[in-house]
């Protein structure tokens, strides 16, 4: 999808409305949706939550897997024409079409994707009132975007902690669909349970105290959700 991301200003965006986002179609070709640690426990009730490398920086990112192959998203799809029906919707999906961008002066500015189908002229929420002041809707959005940046920062720290203790390892996922050739998914990283168990007591205690352990367990359990994705795929194929 083409995007045109511009900083919000009353002059330019006084008259637009934002429709509510019912099926997150903006992500219909995204297999992997970035997560922050604060949402892992919720996301894990629906999706496999795992780690991948960013293809342009090589850095690890925490993601939810919403499809079984590149460019497949089994939740935000066009075809189903139905409302998004998962237990949880990741923050990145909900923030759309808003973004926070950092300017050269280190100032944060709220931006919008002007090409988003959610942007329109008669339906949904306004961004500015008649006095050119931000509406409560926009204020809330801005607040959650700023909070999201902090959460991303904490997420980076969490990943750093895993790497420091050598807890991540590459994992190949093999999925059997009917009688077809097994599908393998590469480039996935998980916490190594053996290494977790072998951590020295002091490190383990720190992980427990700072909440990392709960996230690790949610991540490990969530791998079972691959079955949910497989069922979903088969269901949509049989329709």
């Amino acid at each position: 999808m083409n995007k045109q991301i511009s900083p919000l200003s009353p002059a330019k965006h006084r008259d637009i409305y934002i429709r509510s986002n019912d099926n997150f179609l903006q992500a219909s070709e995204d297999q992997l949706i970035p997560l922050v640690v604060q949402e892992v426990v919720d996301a894990a009730t629906e999706f496999p939550v795992l780690f991948v490398k960013n293809s342009s920086t090589g850095e690890f990112t925490l993601v939810a897997m919403l499809g079984l192959k590149a460019q497949q998203n089994l939740y935000c799809s066009d075809e189903s024409e139905q409302q998004y029906d998962a237990n949880y919707a990741p923050l990145v999906l909900r923030n759309y079409p808003f973004y926070l961008q950092q300017s050269a002066e280190q100032q944060f500015a709220v931006c919008i994707d002007e090409l988003s189908p959610l942007v329109n002229h008669d339906e949904g929420q306004k961004l500015f009132n008649d006095n050119d002041e931000q509406t409560d809707f926009l204020k809330n959005k801005a607040e959650s975007l700023i909070k999201f940046v902090e959460q991303q920062h904490i997420t980076k720290g969490f990943i750093q902690l895993l790497l420091e203790h050598d807890l991540l390892h590459p994992q190949k996922l093999t999925i059997r669909l009917n009688d077809n050739d097994p599908l393998t998914i590469d480039g996935i990283y998980m916490v190594d349970q053996q290494r977790l168990e072998n951590l020295d007591d002091k490190v383990y205690a720190t992980l427990r105290k700072n909440g990392a352990l709960q996230i690790i367990h949610a991540h490990l359990m969530s791998m079972k959700q691959v079955n949910r994705l497989t069922r979903r795929l088969l269901k949509s194929a049989n329709k």
């Binding site: 490398k53 920086t57 090589g58 850095e59 690890f60 790497l163 991540l168 390892h169 590459p170 990283y189």
Partner: peptide, 8 residues
Amino acid sequence: QRFGLQRI
């Protein structure tokens, strides 16, 4: 130079 390489 900016991001380093990962060990794994």
